[in-house]
Amino acid sequence: MRTARRLAAATSGLAGLAALAGCGIQPTGVIEAGVPATGVHPQATVRLYFVSATGLQSVTRPASGPVGPRETLDLLLSGPNSAEAARGLTTELAPPVGVAKVVTGTEQVQIVMSTDVSALTPNAVSQLTCTAANAAAKEGEGPAARIDVRITGGRATRGPLRCAVPATPATPAPATTAP
Rank of each mutant, 00 (worst) to 15 (best):
E139T: 11
T54Q: 12
E92L: 08
Q43T: 04
T104G: 08
L17C: 00
T121L: 15
T129K: 08
V30R: 11
V117T: 14
E141K: 12
A133C: 07
A33Y: 11
A170R: 00
T152F: 02
R146T: 13
R5W: 13
R6N: 14
A173D: 01
Q110A: 04
G34E: 00
G13N: 10
P42F: 09
Q110E: 10
A145G: 01
G105V: 13
T177Y: 07
A137H: 02
P166K: 05
P169V: 04
A10K: 09
I25D: 14
A175H: 12
R155V: 09
C163N: 06
V125F: 10
V59A: 05
E84R: 05
K138F: 00
G68N: 11
P160T: 05
T45R: 10
A144Y: 10
G39Q: 04
D116P: 07
A119G: 12
P143T: 07
A4M: 08
P160H: 08
A170L: 02
A119F: 07
P62F: 03
Q43P: 01
V125S: 12
R146S: 10
T60Q: 11
S82C: 03
S12C: 12
A136P: 01
A133P: 06
H41Y: 03
T45W: 04
P66T: 07
T131I: 08
A19V: 07
T54D: 06
P172S: 03
E32P: 13
C130M: 06
L161A: 06
A44N: 05
I151K: 02
V97A: 13
Q127C: 10
P96V: 11
G39D: 02
I147D: 08
A83G: 10
L128Y: 08
P179F: 02
G16Y: 01
V99R: 08
P179M: 04
A137M: 05
A173W: 00
E84H: 04
A86H: 14
A145Q: 07
P80T: 14
R6W: 15
G13C: 11
T106Y: 11
A144R: 06
T168K: 11
Q26I: 15
R6Q: 15
L48E: 06
T121W: 10
T121G: 14
P27M: 02
V40I: 02
P96G: 12
R146F: 13
R5P: 01
T3D: 13
P96I: 10
R87S: 12
K101L: 15
G140T: 00
R146K: 11
P179C: 00
Q108F: 05
A18H: 01
A132C: 02
A94H: 15
Q108I: 03
A175Y: 02
I111F: 00
D116K: 09
A37W: 05
P42Q: 11
E84V: 11
R47Y: 02
L77R: 09
V103L: 14
L161K: 13
G98I: 06
P96A: 14
A164Y: 00
A4V: 15
T38P: 01
P27W: 05
P80S: 12
A167M: 05
V46Q: 03
P36C: 05
V46F: 04
N81V: 12
